[in-house]
């Protein structure tokens, strides 16, 4: 359940942004979460509701843009989309495949007032 600490990081990033930009309420947060970000989206939603209570983002809508994973084959240099790490290359069937993308954990943008 490290999703709770991740939500606490989101709230402190929102508070820092509020001080910088001079807003007092956040009504919507859009996150980009990669499939290898190590985060369970449902747990993140639950944690977001809990950790934003009593903060500038209480009741804010949470939109999560899920990003697909990418992998690269050592054998044939093929790049392809993946959803798991234990996968063979769809091009050559090789098993020496490494994940090269899909670890996004980003706050993309906010709606504020």
């Amino acid at each position: 359940m490290h999703e709770l600490s991740i939500c606490e990081s989101i709230v402190s990033a929102l508070e820092a942004s509020a001080r910088r930009e001079g807003f007092s309420r956040v009504t919507k947060v859009r996150l980009e979460i990669g499939c290898f970000g190590g985060v369970e989206v449902e747990a993140l939603r639950f944690g977001f509701d809990v950790t934003t209570r009593g903060t500038l983002a209480e009741g804010a809508a949470l939109e999560i843009l899920e990003r697909e994973g990418k992998a690269w084959c050592f054998n044939c240099s093929n790049s392809f989309p993946v959803t798991r790490r234990d996968i063979d290359c769809p091009g050559c069937g090789g098993a020496r495949v490494t994940v090269t993308g899909g670890d996004e954990l980003r706050i993309k943008d906010l709606e504020v007032m």
Binding site: I6, S9, I10, S12, A13, S17, E21, F23, L31, L105, R106, I107, K108, D109, L110, E111, V112
Partner: peptide
């Protein structure tokens, strides 16, 4: 709408 494009783990990182 404010674009912040910030890594969630920025504080830990």
């Amino acid at each position: 709408m404010i674009e912040i494009e910030q890594n969630i783990m920025a504080k830990n990182d």
